[in-house]
């Protein structure tokens, strides 16, 4: 049996974390939560998750800065940005920094399923 994916989600919104956790647990993922751009870096170091879902607008450090730091820690980190601000500039910057995808809020379940499948494919 394949071991469950360990996913780190980072968003200052309690609602978003709750909803995303429910989606991911339905897909049998193990979920760890961060509330801001500093905590996500700490938790990445600590847990080395298989993938990260991360907001852009967050307190302490924004998602773009946190993405840079995570990539410094782990070049192979699989990060998907999940944000309400899906502007062309944000999208390009995130992809340039190595994010594997960018999902615009509000998302739907099928986008999350696809993102998790992409993470599994990258792992294999």
């Amino acid at each position: 049996m394949q071991k469950p994916l360990k996913i780190l989600i980072s968003d200052d919104s309690l609602l978003l974390r709750k909803k995303l956790r429910e989606e991911l647990e339905k897909l049998s993922c193990q979920v760890v939560e961060a509330k801001d751009g500093e905590e996500v870096i700490e938790l990445y170091n600590q847990f080395r998750p298989d993938g990260v879902f991360m907001d852009i607008v967050m307190p302490k450090a924004n998602g773009i800065d946190a993405l840079k730091k995570i990539k410094e820690i782990d070049q192979e980190a699989r990060v998907i940005m999940l944000s309400s601000t899906g502007t062309a500039a944000n999208l390009l910057e995130a992809l340039k920094l190595g994010a594997i995808d960018f999902i615009q809020k509000p998302y739907n379940s099928s986008q999350i399923v696809k993102a998790v499948n992409d993470m599994i494919r990258k792992e294999n």
Binding site: L14, L16, S84
Partner: peptide
């Protein structure tokens, strides 16, 4: 938090519309 997210998602859509018109805005928490 949910009430705040409603405004955040709405403003995110507004920023995308402006971005398509060549105006770049950053959203604050």
């Amino acid at each position: 938090d949910s009430a705040g997210e409603f405004l955040n998602v709405t403003n995110g859509l507004f920023c995308i519309n402006l971005s398509n018109m060549g105006l770049d805005l950053d959203l604050h928490p």
